[in-house]
Design a protein around this nucleic acid. Structure first.
Length: 573
DNA sequence: GCCGTTTTCGGCCCGACTGTTTTCAGTCG
């Protein structure tokens, strides 16, 4: 048996689907592979367990054929069906599909007629003018492909959520000034608060659509106009971000907002459900017997389809429709539930502000408590504190606690987990503290087994209460390190250790799916900002978004507790 | 390839936009 994660198996299925489609296979067969891949990434159960217990084919979308294919792949370490088709079709074809405007059918013609088998070949074919000679292609297609190829190569255009929220806010402010704009909302993955997005989708209800589109594409922020239609305008802003604006009538707005918020998978399920209930749902409205059903808001759509309202963060086809039908949706945690921030850095290590400034910022936000958790000695790049400096800091906190009686300042530390799993301070130091957070900052190159053991050893230390940014990823820069998540969760539950949702804009670690997995294990979470500057206190909403996407409720998160309850929890009472 | 309170065969979500086509295929969301 070979260790393959659900995600890796999903990748195999997707590659297989893409190649089959390029070859010209029945598209429903192809879709079956995509569906199976999607199912694998959407579940928290481990693939190997499902296979071992013979429950794999219980998953919807995974039947006899794909079950056999997965089993075979796990046994051999490779998928013979995929390898076979890869002998026939070069692997570089897969990357062609990443080019916007180029799908499997076009890739088919490019390969079978011109022998183009990768990005380089495409570029040459385009430059030599061969591509435009093909049937179904032309000069315009050539230009479009050249442009999108350049875009694809020039940069990976992922936008982190924080950036997307700010940039879309600017655009919304600008658009609101135009008279014809009656209503405006973010749509797409930003509205679902996904951690990264490819573009910004905005939806407007308004009169005189052409005027609105015209106003939009002439905004000062706009650099190039990529599309201008009757109901839609697409631009690239000076920050290089793609923005799509759609304009609909006020009557259409609720259905359009639902539609353009997605996810695509959620919408597919919702339309299936609508169809079964005798309705038709599209971006223009909800229809019964060709008659438009009047909708006042997006909520009406869910209500009419006999579902509890599903917040955008949950719309990922991860079981939310069934839960909504059964009245079992989570009461999602919200920003108002947060009583304090348990991971903050001061000037004692690599933070910008004094502890007092952090205290003041927290009081302004109405927090009941904060924890000062600077770095421990070995993390030199972050000015980790020697035991002596830590003692100084503890004195300072006591002094400030006397000064500010309306907020509890917890004495904390973010202690490094050494590469052997030991901690960077001895227990005699840790026992003096209210809160010990442990984290990995070095040795990312270790293998899965080593990292997992290291983490487990840290959790076995009785003083460790939270593991910070447990997967070590940096968005757009560094992938999560390999860690055995099942063992991590089991150990966290056993030792009553919390896992962190680190709200730092480039971390958002744990991610939404792993958060949900933690909840399934009964593991508690802490949503912290890891602020090094007081502006970063705002990042709490990003962590809340991850929590909501991970189906968390107030009671799953420790920093929703009142101070007395939290203190008793930290003491292990 | 998957699936089933009309089904083991015959469907599989739906519509806009684009470019190329002269009635539509491909891509995208």
């Amino acid at each position: 048996m070979v260790e393959l994660s659900n995600k890796e198996m999903a990748t195999i299925l997707r590659e297989l689907a893409d190649l089959l489609e390029i070859r010209g296979e029945n598209r429903f067969k192809v879709r079956a592979y995509y569906n199976a891949a999607r199912r694998l990434t959407a579940i928290n159960q481990d693939l190997h367990q499902l296979v071992a217990t013979n429950r794999l084919k219980e998953l919807p979308g995974i039947g006899k054929g794909i079950t056999a294919l997965i089993k075979e792949t796990l046994e051999n370490g490779y998928c013979s069906t995929l390898e076979e088709i890869k002998r026939e079709l070069p692997a570089g074809l897969l990357e062609l599909l990443m080019v916007p405007g180029l799908g499997p059918k076009k890739a088919h013609h490019l390969f079978y007629q011109l022998g183009i088998e990768d990005i380089e070949g495409l570029k040459k074919g385009l430059e030599k003018g061969q591509v435009r000679e093909l049937k179904g292609f032309g000069a315009k297609t050539e230009q479009k492909l050249l442009a999108s190829l350049e875009e694809y190569q020039s940069y990976q255009k992922l936008i982190i959520l924080q950036h997307a929220l700010l940039h879309s806010q600017e655009l919304i402010e600008e658009l609101k000034r135009y008279q014809g704009v009656l209503q405006i909302e973010r749509a797409g993955s930003i509205r679902r608060m996904k951690e990264v997005t490819g573009d910004i989708d905005l939806l407007v209800a308004g009169k005189e659509r052409a005027g609105i589109i015209n106003y939009f594409i002439r905004l000062p922020l706009v650099e190039t106009v990529t599309l201008q239609g009757e109901n839609k305008g697409s631009v690239r802003t000076e920050q290089g971000i793609q923005v799509d604006l759609r304009v609909v009538s006020p009557a259409e707005f609720p259905a359009a907002l639902q539609y353009f918020t997605g996810s695509k998978e959620h919408n597919v399920r919702l339309r299936e459900l609508a169809k079964k209930s005798g309705y038709k749902l599209n971006e223009y409205g909800l229809f019964k017997d060709e008659q438009r059903v009047e909708l006042k808001s997006e909520q009406d759509i869910y209500r009419i389809l006999k579902l509890d309202y599903i917040i955008p963060e949950l719309r990922e086809d991860r079981g939310e429709l069934a839960a909504a039908a059964a009245g079992k949706l989570p009461v999602s945690i919200s920003y108002q539930d947060i009583k304090g921030d348990l991971h903050l850095h001061s000037r004692f290590s690599d933070g910008v502000h004094s502890i007092e400034e952090l205290v003041q910022t927290a009081r302004q936000r109405g927090y009941q408590y904060i924890a000062i958790t600077d770095h421990s000695q070995s993390l030199r790049v972050a000015h980790g504190m020697s035991p002596e400096t830590l003692q100084q800091q503890l004195g300072e906190i006591e002094h400030l606690q006397d000064k500010y009686s309306d907020i509890k300042i917890l004495k904390g530390i973010e202690v490094d987990i050494n590469s052997d799993g030991s901690l960077d301070y001895p227990d005699q130091i840790l026992e003096q503290l209210d809160l010990v957070i442990a984290a990995i900052h070095t040795g990312f190159g270790q293998g899965k087994a080593e990292i997992t053991e290291r983490m487990i050893k840290a959790m076995e230390n009785p003083y460790v209460k939270i593991i910070a940014h447990p997967q070590g990823r940096i968005l757009k820069k560094r992938a999560a390190y390999q860690i055995d998540r099942e063992r991590l969760m089991e150990k966290a539950r056993e030792t009553n250790t919390c896992l962190e949702i680190n709200s730092s804009a480039y971390r958002l670690d744990l991610d939404d799916l792993t958060v949900r997995m933690a909840k399934g294990y009964g593991v508690k979470l802490a949503i912290n900002t890891d602020s090094h500057h007081r502006n970063e206190f705002d990042n709490m909403i990003l962590g809340i978004a991850v929590a909501r996407r991970g189906w968390l409720e107030k009671d799953d998160v420790i920093n929703t507790m009142e101070i007395e309850q939290l203190l008793s929890f930290l003491r292990g009472d």
